[in-house]
């Protein structure tokens, strides 16, 4: 692993995601594949680790301001944890190129959303 590139990825990826308010994964995955040459699958798996810590860091502000509906969060978590298992298993089974294609479509959807709604 190229440490300089990893440092660059963390710095730029983190800053852009904080600046635009979109989650780290959308910015991290292309940097992990493009700059650090991870396979698509490893990039998705590694990005999620970063997402855990980034969400932990960001959520405190919302808790302090009282902007969390805990009952709703608990209800959503029940099914989202199951969904995550399905998603991870599909990711493991999917060839790298097809996974790349699906991620590209996701990026286009996010890009259009940002462009239209700001």
């Amino acid at each position: 692993m190229d440490r300089q590139r990893a440092i660059f990825t963390g710095t730029v990826g983190g800053f852009v995601s904080g600046l635009t308010g979109i989650g780290g994964g959308t910015v991290m995955v292309p940097l992990l594949t493009g700059l650090l040459k991870l396979t698509q699958r490893r990039a998705h798996a590694t990005s999620l680790v970063i997402v855990i810590f980034a969400a932990l860091a960001a959520v405190s502000q919302y808790i302090i301001r009282g902007e969390v509906d805990w009952a709703l969060a608990a209800a959503l978590t029940v099914s989202s944890v199951v969904g995550a298992q399905i998603g991870a298993h599909v990711m493991h089974a999917m060839p790298d190129r097809e996974l790349r294609l699906v991620f590209a479509i996701f990026l286009i959807v996010v890009g259009v959303r940002l462009l239209v709604f700001g």
Binding site: M28, H44, L48, L76, S79, Q85, G87
Partner: peptide, 25 residues
């Protein structure tokens, strides 16, 4: 709620993103 969680969770696991892009809207 169950469907939003399931779809958002699956997107997160598949795409390596948090899923906020889906959860929030």
């Amino acid at each position: 709620v169950a469907l939003i969680g399931l779809v958002g969770g699956a997107a997160s696991g598949l795409l390596g993103v948090g899923g906020g892009t889906l959860f929030v809207p």
